[in-house]
Amino acid sequence: MSTSTLNTSANVPAVAWQRLREVPLLPAVAAAVVLFFVVAALAPHLLTSRDPFAIDLPNALQAPSLAHPFGTDQSGRDLYTRVVYGTRESLLIGLGATGLSMAIAVVLGVVSGLGGKIFDGLINRSLEVLFAFPVLLLAMLFVTVYGPSVTTQIVAVGLGTAPGYARMIRGQVLAVKNSGYVEAAHALGHSRWTVLRQHVFPNAMRPLVAVVTLGIGQSIVWASGLAFLGLGVAPPSPEWGALLDAGRMFITRAWWLEVMPGLAIVAIALAATVLGHHLQKKLEGARS
């Protein structure tokens, strides 16, 4: 007779995010953004015909217009061109710092996870000491001692972010080491090394794929933070953090000096993150 319907709605933001992620458009846009920045890093002249260092004082501090889409800085240099040319150093810092921090983290994490009580205890306590300091503080300390350059920025951010990753990898290694399939492999009579090579390493490193892409964006943000504090690559380099630092003085008069390089940082970090999520889903989806 009377037909009734029960509708159950789950938590709204979660559902919205789920839907957003299911749109294949988002990874496509992210890929396009990443591609743009890769081109900018490798061949910036393809994306702009201007010179990032060409001073044009009469046109200083122009608001964004058709001629200067991102506006101009205090010396009349085209900000868009500078952002494009700054990509190489910024990406280098992002990739380098992530690579370095991953390398440190993998070594520490694996040794900690497999090395038994003594190594695990030692590494864990040291990591806890490092955790006590904010990433930025560690990085600042390093740059202050060794002077600002691209290399020190990479090392500073890499060292600063490594403890977090090391902890994560240690957890992964421990989880895999105690998993049923590792026990099963031992029961089949495989040697310790075979088990490590066949099961522990590949499974423990699996989640890293996503973390790395997330880490790249994060590292760029950290490096920009350092540059903003005057501990980055020195001007007139168009590295994004340096641009932010330089624009700080004019923030009340020329908002675009802060907003435009900021947008570039947000764009690459977001795009890398979205791609990372997508990649992770693809990798895991293939198996389920």
């Binding site: 998993s179 049923g180 399939y181 026990e183 099963a184 492999a185 029961a187 089949l188 009579g189 040697s191 310790r192 066949q198 099961h199 590949p202 499974n203 699996r206 198996r287």
Partner: peptide, 26 residues
């Protein structure tokens, strides 16, 4: 020692309650 046992490991095998966790997911 584990090494002394390895050659005979294959004489005794095991089936667990939860087969899923005993297989490498890859």
């Amino acid at each position: 020692s584990t090494a002394a046992r390895r050659s005979r490991r294959r004489s005794v095998t095991v089936v667990y309650q939860d087969p899923l966790s005993s297989f490498d997911p890859r």
